[in-house]
Amino acid sequence: MKILYLETSSKNCSVAISDDEKLLCVAEEVSENYKQSESLHSFVEWALEGAELSIKDIDVVCLGKGPGSYTGLRIGAASAKGFCYGLHIPLVAVNSLESMKETFLVQNYDLVIPLVDARRMEVYTAVYDGISGNELSPTEAKVLDETSFQEFNDKKILFVGDGAKKAKEILQLPDAEFNEDIYPSAQYLVKKTLEKIKNKDFEDIAYFEPFYLKEFHGVKKKKSEE
């Protein structure tokens, strides 16, 4: 089964292709300017070329559904839906935070905690078991302060993600470790995607929306006159 993975929730515009669990190709780039709109389809073309496939060979599309950048998620969702509609194939959606902890499991950490910068002192986060990778605390938007994560102060913790920089400055957890240069990546969505395919846990393409977690605060709409 050939699977196309799209991950656009962060500064990392990321595309991958696998044949079941075998990763065939990855195309990704971290950009401060969020280049999903101009890069995503080029990356899909490069990944297909690297995997020696055509888009018609793809059997399933997986989207990193967020949380993260509102605009990035909209671009990723629109592209994923377009591929699924055009090819008549199913859509799988995986929490983007899942991909951030994959490479740090079974490395002597009790907990792996992704932190995605959500501006000011807020982060998107969830808590995962450092061995099994199971979710221990659900995904939430959390405002960091000196008391954050104190319930885990007796655990060996690794914080990963671009939100780890500000966390390192404020959290009162002297034994914790921080890795700031980690972003959601399409190549680490494979395991969870295969689980969902096995369970036939597919999205309703017509009604699917990314996992925004928070409402988008942009230009206010004018109230319609009654």
Rank of each mutant, 00 (worst) to 15 (best):
V112E: 03
K200H: 12
L171N: 03
K2H: 12
Y207Q: 07
D117S: 02
L105E: 06
I113Y: 01
F43N: 07
T71W: 03
D110N: 13
D201H: 10
A176K: 08
G130I: 00
C62A: 14
S79M: 14
G163E: 12
I113K: 01
S224Q: 13
K165L: 08
L63R: 08
E32W: 06
K220I: 12
E7G: 11
Y5C: 09
S148W: 06
V60F: 15
A141H: 10
F43Y: 15
G130M: 01
A93R: 05
E45M: 12
E29V: 14
T103R: 12
T193S: 11
S96I: 06
A77E: 05
S137I: 14
K220A: 14
V15A: 08
G72F: 14
K220V: 14
H88K: 13
S69D: 08
A126C: 07
G130P: 01
V44P: 03
K2S: 04
Y70C: 13
C62L: 03
K223L: 13
L173T: 08
K192W: 05
S39V: 08
Y109E: 05
I113Q: 00
A77P: 02
W46M: 12
R120I: 02
L213S: 06
G50T: 00
Y70I: 14
Y128I: 08
A93M: 10
T103Q: 12
V92S: 02
V143S: 11
F178Y: 15
Y85E: 05
I17G: 06
K221N: 15
E45T: 15
F159Y: 09
G161K: 03
K168Q: 15
E180T: 14
S137E: 15
I3A: 02
K223G: 07
M1R: 03
K22R: 15
D57C: 00
G66K: 01
L87A: 11
K214L: 07
A78E: 03
E180F: 11
V44R: 08
T71N: 05
G50I: 00
L144A: 12
F149I: 01
D117K: 04
S96H: 03
F178R: 02
V106R: 10
G66F: 02
I113L: 00
V61R: 05
A186D: 11
N12G: 06
R120M: 08
S132P: 10
P184K: 04
A93D: 04
I170T: 14
V112R: 00
S185I: 12
N95Y: 04
N199W: 09
F208E: 00
E29C: 12
V15Y: 12
L105F: 05
T193C: 07
L189M: 14
E140C: 09
A16N: 04
S39Y: 12
K221Y: 10
N153D: 11
D59I: 03
S18K: 00
E122D: 14
Q150D: 09
